[in-house]
Design a protein around this nucleic acid. Structure first.
Length: 328
DNA sequence: TGCCAGGCGGGGT
DNA sequence: ACCCCGCATGGC
C-alpha cells in the first residue's frame, strides 16, 4: 500500500508562538520506528490510514490514500501535538510542587503527543504488573511482529501499529511478543474495537470522565489504571489519573500520606491535570523502578537524564530494549 | 535461584 | 469496602 502526499506546510511558527518544543514533544515516549532524532512519523488515523511527517523544525507533510478530508487531518495533527492545549494552569500548580517544579520549567515546551485509543490501551496493558523496560519491550515486539509497512510517496515508508483487526485475525503470534497472560486482554480489546462495541472517539469525548472510564473498564482485563492511562494518552482527558503502585508509593512518601489517600491527594493538587502530571512525573524520573525513583527524589534528581538507558525521553534511541525471544 | 515488577479479577472477609 | 492470591514473562 502507498499513501499520497496530500499537503505540506510548517507548524514551526505556531509551535514557537505557543511555547511548544517540538523536539521534546516528538521524542518523548516515542519509538525508533517513528522518530529518528529529527523527523517524527505520526499516525493520525489507523483505519484509512493517514500519516504525518513532522520535523523538529516544524516542517510537516501529510500522507493519505484519499486527500479529501485534509482539513480534518491538519486539525487532528495540531490536536495530537497539543499545540493549542493551554497548560499554563498546569505549570502554575507545578511551580509550587516539590516533584515537578523543576521539570515544569526546564520542560515547559513538552506537550503530550496523543495516540490512537486502541493503541493507548495496548500500551497500558503492557505496563500492567511489569517494569518500564519489560512493558516497552512488549510494545516494540508487538510493532515488530504485527506492524504493517506502508509507503509514503517519495518519502520512504512507515510501519503502522497493528490494526485491531490484525490481532483478531491471528492472535497466536502475541505469544512471541512476551506479553504473557496479557495476550487475552489485548485480544479482547482488539475484538471490542473491530466489532465496534465501543462508542466512537467523538461520542466518548462528549462523555463524563467517570463514564469513559466505565466504558473502558467494561473490557475484561482493563482496570482503572489502564483505562485512565488510555484516557490520558489518547483523549487528552486528565482529570482521572492512572495511579499505580509506583505513583501511590511516591505520593505517600513525598507528601506523607497514607497510600489509600494518595489518589485523593494527587487529584486535589492537580485537578484537571492529574493524568498529565502523572505522565510528567514518569518523564522527570526516567520511569526509574520504584526504589531507584525514591532514591532520586531523595537526592533531588528531578530532571530526565540522557544516560540512564531506556527511559521515556530516550526510548526512541533504542531498537530493542531486551533480548527478543528466539522463536522455535 | 527464586523473587518481583507502573494490574487485574475473583474469591474471601 | 477492604484484603489476598494467582498469573506469564524477563531481569536481577
Amino acid at each position: 500500500m502507498a499513501l499520497k502526499l496530500c499537503t505540506e506546510f510548517s507548524i514551526g511558527d505556531e509551535a514557537r508562538s505557543r511555547g511548544v518544543d517540538l523536539f521534546k514533544t516528538l521524542s518523548v515516549y516515542n519509538l525508533r520506528h517513528w522518530f529518528d532524532g529529527s523527523t517524527a512519523k505520526i499516525v493520525l488515523d489507523l483505519d484509512i490510514p493517514v500519516v504525518a511527517l513532522v520535523n523538529v523544525d516544524g516542517y510537516t507533510k501529510i500522507f493519505a490514500s484519499n486527500c479529501k478530508e485534509i482539513d480534518l487531518y491538519v486539525k487532528k495533527l495540531l490536536w495530537s501535538l497539543g499545540i493549542y492545549e493551554d497548560i499554563s494552569s498546569f505549570q502554575s500548580i507545578a511551580s509550587r510542587d516539590p516533584l515537578l517544579s523543576r521539570f515544569s520549567i526546564e520542560w515547559s515546551g513538552w506537550r503530550l503527543r496523543s495516540s490512537d485509543l486502541w493503541w493507548a490501551l495496548v500500551i497500558g496493558v503492557c505496563q500492567q504488573n511489569a517494569s518500564f523496560r519489560q512493558g516497552w519491550s512488549m510494545v516494540i515486539n508487538i510493532v515488530d511482529i504485527y506492524g504493517r509497512v506502508v509507503e509514503l510517496e517519495n518519502n520512504g515508508d512507515v510501519v503502522l501499529p497493528p490494526h485491531p483487526g490484525d490481532i483478531v485475525r491471528d492472535p497466536s503470534r502475541l505469544i512471541d511478543t512476551g506479553v504473557g497472560y496479557r495476550a487475552k486482554t489485548i485480544e479482547s480489546i482488539a475484538r471490542v474495537f473491530t466489532e465496534k462495541r465501543i462508542p466512537s472517539i467523538d461520542d466518548l469525548q462528549k462523555m463524563d470522565s467517570r463514564d469513559i472510564e466505565a466504558v473502558l473498564r467494561g473490557i475484561r482485563g482493563v482496570g482503572s489504571y489502564t483505562a485512565r492511562l488510555a484516557m490520558t494518552l489518547a483523549l487528552r482527558r486528565y482529570e482521572l489519573p492512572p495511579v499505580d503502585r509506583w505513583l501511590k508509593k511516591i505520593v505517600s512518601k513525598v507528601y506523607g500520606v497514607d497510600e489509600k489517600s494518595a489518589e485523593d491527594i494527587w487529584r486535589d493538587m492537580w485537578g484537571m491535570w492529574s493524568g498529565l502530571a502523572a505522565v510528567a512525573l514518569t518523564i522527570a524520573l526516567d520511569a526509574a523502578p520504584l526504589r531507584e525513583a525514591l532514591a532520586r527524589i531523595e537526592r533531588g534528581e528531578l530532571l530526565p537524564k540522557i544516560d540512564t538507558g531506556p527511559s521515556p525521553a530516550t526510548l526512541w534511541r533504542y531498537t530493542a530494549i531486551v533480548k527478543r525471544r528466539i522463536c522455535r
